[in-house]
Simulated assay, not measured.
Amino acid sequence: MLAIDSGNTRTKWAVFADDGRIQEAGVCLNAELAAFVIPPSWQLCKHAIVANVAGERVAASMTALLKKAGLSYVWAKAEAETLGLKNKYEVPESLGVDRWAALLAAFKRYLNQPACLVVNAGTALTIDAIYQNAFIGGLIVPGFSMMQNALLQNTSAVNPQSGQAKTFPLNTADASYSGVLSAIVGAIVMQADKLESHCQDVPTVVITGGDAAMLMPILTQVFGAKPVLADNLVLEGLYLMERAKS
């Protein structure tokens, strides 16, 4: 099976074996999809499941690629319940499908844990909570690059992209870089604390996405225990969604 996750900036894909193992995976910038060369491994798949939060233009590009590859496909959507995980969003189907897929994969991995905080650190940062077999809510925060770009575009003397993380910054570049990083980490820690208070137990923190590796060292320092770094969590969730229907 082929799973495709078209995020705001990049499209990730993975070919899954019948037992759920990833056989091959790749990534392409959305801006370069028109020139994407279909890998031979796609031709071995019979079916694809696609998550798209990047809009109609990317959807059209993906449709053209899948038709060219001769694959049947479905567009993934969030549901009220899948594989025992309940979706308590006010309108379950309006939850971003990438968030739902990541939640499902984390739920499957850590089924025996009392609570789980799922962090997807991409163009946008999502911080979603699972408790008692249900998604109980979450945050959407500007991601690291988006916050940096906001400072660049709306100030005249701040360039956070040239800075470094410092505890007490002594120049503007370090101050802005460290400020962006602290804002993101602070949002994650705040939600982890809220979830711990809500369930009266320490939640498992799972992080995925393009900025996950960058955030891991500081999150490990803050939590005192290493969060779980989970590559391809959204793709794994898409695979589970489609297998649940068979």
Rank of each mutant, 00 (worst) to 15 (best):
M1C: 14
L2P: 00
A3R: 06
D5H: 02
S6G: 15
N8D: 09
N8L: 08
T9E: 01
T9N: 07
R10E: 06
R10T: 15
R10P: 02
A14F: 02
F16W: 03
D18K: 14
C28L: 07
L29P: 11
L29M: 11
E32I: 00
A35G: 14
V37K: 15
I38T: 15
C45R: 10
H47Q: 12
G55R: 08
G55D: 07
G55P: 09
E56P: 04
R57N: 14
V58N: 12
A59L: 05
S61G: 09
L65K: 13
K68D: 10
G70Q: 09
G70P: 07
L71D: 08
L71P: 09
Y73W: 15
A76T: 01
K77R: 11
A78V: 04
E81S: 12
G84S: 08
L85C: 09
K86G: 10
K88I: 06
E90W: 12
P92Q: 13
G96N: 07
V97R: 05
A102H: 06
L104F: 01
A105V: 03
L111N: 14
N112Y: 13
A115Q: 04
C116V: 15
C116S: 14
V118F: 05
A121N: 06
A124S: 06
I127A: 05
A129C: 14
Y131C: 08
Q132V: 01
N133A: 13
F135E: 02
I136K: 07
G137N: 14
G137V: 11
G137F: 08
G137C: 08
G138I: 11
I140Q: 00
I140K: 00
V141N: 03
P142D: 03
M146N: 13
M146Y: 10
M147F: 01
L151P: 09
Q153I: 02
S156V: 14
S162A: 13
Q164A: 10
T167R: 12
A173R: 11
D174V: 12
S178C: 13
S178L: 09
L181S: 09
S182D: 13
A183V: 06
I188D: 02
Q191P: 00
D193V: 10
E196P: 05
S197E: 15
H198D: 01
D201R: 05
P203T: 01
P203H: 03
T204D: 02
T204H: 07
V205I: 14
V206G: 09
V206D: 05
I207G: 05
T208D: 09
G210C: 08
G210N: 08
D211Y: 03
A212Q: 04
A213D: 11
A213C: 10
M214D: 07
L215F: 05
L219K: 03
F223G: 01
F223L: 12
A225K: 15
A225Q: 14
P227N: 02
L229D: 03
A230H: 08
L233W: 04
G237Q: 05
L238W: 01
L238C: 02
L238T: 05
M241F: 04
E242K: 15
E242C: 14
R243E: 04
K245I: 13
K245C: 07
S246W: 03
